[in-house]
Design a protein around this nucleic acid. Structure first.
Length: 507
RNA sequence: GGCGGCGUAGCUCAGUUGGUCAGAGCAUCCGGCUCAUAAUCGGAAGGUCCUCGGUUCAAGUCCGAGCGCCGCUACCA
C-alpha cells in the first residue's frame, strides 16, 4: 500500500482559528481524502505551535501558566476541525512529550554534526517588548538615529547575547543541488522558483536559542538555552511520525509526501527545514505545496480592517459542504484567493444548487414518474461513458498536482454533460420503456461516479447523493480508479428525491 | 535598493518542448424546453494574449527593453 503523509503548518495558539487556518486545513483534508479513495495509507497531520514569548506574555496577561493558557486554546482548533469535517489522523501539540523528545533528538544530531555552534548575537533590544529589532524596523530619534521602539516609543538598548546558531550558510550548494535533482518537489512551480531564488540570494546562519526565554524546549547539552521558533515548530512533522523515540520506526511514515504551507513561510519550510534535516542525516520531504492567502474582500484579514471572517459562522448560513466547496473551487491553489459573500453565494447557486443539486432532483423525479422509482441500468456504450472517463482522468491529474479548483472543474464537466444528455433525449416526453430506462440509467451512473469524485471536497454531500440514487454502503469505501469505471450502477435500486441537496440562496 | 512572481474575454483562470491556442466556467444577450431548486439545454457576442523591439517559415509561447500590479527582504495559513 502506498503511504501518503501530509501535514499542515501547526497553528500558533496566540489567536483562535480563523478563515486562513481553515483554508489550508480544508485543502489538506480534501487532498488526503482523495488519496484515501485511491487506497493509499494516509496520515494527515495538523496541530498547534505552543511555545515562545508571545504565549508566555499572553499567559501572564491572563494570569495563568503558559501550559494552562495553551491548554485552553488548542482544543478550539481541534474542535473547529471537527466542525469542518476534517479527517486528520493526528493532532500534535508542541507541548507534548513526544514532540519535546523529537526536538531534543534533532538538535542533538545537528549539534553532533557540528552545524550548531555558540556565537554572539548582538542587536537593538526593546526591554518593554523583550524583542530585538532591525534598524529599518525602528523609528528615528531627534538625531536621526534609528533607535526608537515603534511600539513603546522609547530608546532601545544595545544588547549582546550568547546564542546558538545553525550554520545554514554551509548548505547553500547542497540545497541547490538537491532541488536541481528534485525539480518537482515544490508546487506550484512559480512558488518553488521563489524558494530557489531565496537560496541563491545567499543564506545566513540563524539563531536557534535564547537564554531570555523560559517557555520552550531546553537545548539538551546546554539547558540555560531554550530553542527558539524553528527547531521547535518544524520538528513536529518528524515527531508525529515517531522520530525521537529511540528507534528508526519513524521511517515507516517519513518522509512526508507534502508539507502544505502558506507563501509566507516558504523560507522556513523550503530552506531551513531541509538544511536541518540534511545536517541530521534525515531524508528530506518529497514535496511542498505552497498556497497563497485567502483574502477577505481583497484585503488580508485583520481586526482593524473589520473583515475577519469566522468559518464556523459561514457554515450556519450556507452549510458545511457549500463552504468547503467554495474554498476549494473558487481559489487557484498557489495564488491568493478572495473571500466575498457574493462570491460564495454565486458559486453555491451556480455549481451546487443549479447544476449538481438540480440534476439530482430532476433525475429522481423522472425516475419516479417513468421508472416506478427504481433505478435502471446505464447503456454500456453511452456517450457519457467517455465523458466520465475523461472527467476522472482530469480530476485525478489535478489532485495529483494539488490543484483542487481544477479537479472540481473537471468533475463538473461530467455534471454538465449529464444535464445536456437529458436535454438531448428528453426522457420526460417519452412513454416508459427501454429508451427511457437507458437514459435514466446513464444519468444515475453519472451521479454515482460524481458522488465518488466529489467526496474529497464534500464528504456529507457525496454520501447523501450516494444514498439517494440507492447505492448501498459508503462512498468512503469506494476505491479508485475502479469505482470511476462506467457501468456499475445497480439497476433496481430505490431512488429517492428528498429535500433539495443545496437550496438556492437569495442574495 | 535587491531577489522573485504576475499581466490572456466584464470576472476568475486554462493554455506541454514555439506550428487549428485564441479557450473554459461565471456574468451578458437571443432562442428552445418545462422532468427539475425561476433550475436546464442550444446559440451569440465579447480579447492589439500589457507595450515596443528582436529571433523564426511560424511567438500568448523564446530573447531584450519598458510600463503596471504584487510578494519576499529573515515572527505571522
Amino acid at each position: 500500500m502506498t503511504r501518503f503523509y501530509v501535514t499542515t503548518p501547526i497553528y500558533y495558539v496566540n489567536a483562535e482559528p480563523h478563515l486562513g487556518h481553515a483554508y489550508t486545513t480544508i485543502i489538506g483534508d480534501a487532498l488526503t481524502r482523495w488519496h484515501r479513495l485511491l487506497g493509499d495509507d494516509v496520515t494527515y497531520l495538523t496541530g498547534t505551535d505552543e511555545h515562545g514569548l508571545k504565549i508566555q506574555q499572553a499567559a501572564e496577561a491572563a494570569n495563568v501558566t503558559p501550559q494552562e493558557f495553551t491548554d485552553s486554546i488548542a482544543p478550539k482548533f481541534a474542535a473547529a476541525w471537527e466542525k469542518l469535517n476534517i479527517a486528520n489522523d493526528d493532532f500534535i501539540r508542541t507541548t507534548e512529550p513526544r514532540h519535546k523528545a523529537a526536538v531534543a533528538e534533532l538538535l542533538q544530531r545537528c549539534y553532533a554534526a557540528g552545524d550548531i555552534e555558540l556565537d554572539t548575537f548582538a542587536g537593538k533590544y526593546c526591554v518593554a517588548c523583550e524583542e530585538y529589532y532591525q534598524d529599518d524596523e525602528l523609528d528615528k530619534d531627534a538625531e536621526g538615529e534609528a533607535n526608537q521602539c515603534p511600539i513603546h516609543h522609547r530608546a532601545v538598548e544595545f544588547f549582546e547575547e550568547e546564542n546558538y546558531f545553525f550554520r545554514l550558510s554551509r548548505f547553500e550548494d547542497r540545497l541547490l543541488d538537491w532541488y536541481a535533482a528534485h525539480p518537482t518537489a515544490m508546487t506550484p512551480e512559480q512558488r518553488g522558483n521563489e524558494a530557489i531564488g531565496l537560496i541563491k540570494s545567499g543564506l545566513r546562519d540563524f539563531s536557534i536559542s535564547r537564554t531570555s526565554l523560559e517557555w520552550g524546549i531546553p537545548l539538551p547539552w546546554d539547558e540555560k538555552h531554550v530553542t527558539y521558533v524553528w527547531f521547535d515548530a518544524l520538528t513536529n512533522y518528524l515527531a508525529a511520525a515517531g522520530f525521537g523515540d529511540g528507534t528508526d520506526a519513524y521511517k515507516d511514515n517519513w518522509p512526508a509526501d507534502f508539507h502544505l504551507i502558506g507563501k509566507d513561510i516558504v523560507r522556513q519550510h523550503c530552506v531551513y527545514w531541509p538544511a536541518m534535516l540534511m545536517s541530521a542525516g534525515i531524508e528530506l520531504p518529497k514535496g511542498w505545496a505552497i498556497g497563497g492567502w485567502l483574502l477577505s474582500g481583497g484585503e488580508k484579514m485583520s481586526k482593524t480592517a473589520g473583515n475577519v471572517v469566522n468559518p464556523l459562522d459561514l457554515i450556519d448560513d450556507i452549510g458545511l459542504d457549500g463552504f468547503r466547496y467554495y474554498v476549494l473551487a473558487d481559489t487557484t491553489y498557489g495564488n491568493d484567493g478572495d473571500f466575498t459573500w457574493e462570491g460564495l453565494v454565486g458559486r453555491y447557486n451556480s455549481d451546487l444548487a443549479n447544476n449538481l443539486g438540480n440534476l439530482a432532483a430532476r433525475v429522481a423525479t423522472v425516475v419516479a414518474k417513468k421508472c416506478d422509482g427504481l433505478g435502471t441500468a446505464p447503456a454500456p456504450d453511452s456517450p457519457l461513458a467517455a465523458v466520465a472517463a475523461q472527467a476522472y482522468a482530469d480530476t485525478a491529474a489535478s489532485w495529483t498536482s494539488v490543484q483542487p479548483s481544477r479537479a472540481l472543474d473537471a468533475t463538473w464537466s461530467l455534471i454538465r454533460a449529464t444535464n445536456s444528455h437529458l436535454e438531448t433525449n428528453e426522457p420526460w416526453k417519452s412513454e416508459p420503456g427501454a429508451d427511457v430506462d437507458r437514459v435514466m440509467g446513464d444519468a444515475l451512473e453519472a451521479l454515482r461516479i460524481v458522488a465518488v469524485l466529489v467526496h474529497p471536497a464534500m464528504p456529507d454531500t457525496a454520501q447523501a447523493l450516494w444514498e439517494r440514487i440507492g447505492m448501498a454502503g459508503n462512498v468512503v469505501d469506494q476505491r479508485l480508479p475502479d469505482a470511476a469505471a462506467w457501468g456499475q450502477y445497480t439497476a433496481g435500486s430505490v431512488v429517492t428525491k428528498g429535500d433539495a441537496l443545496f437550496p438556492r440562496i437569495k442574495l
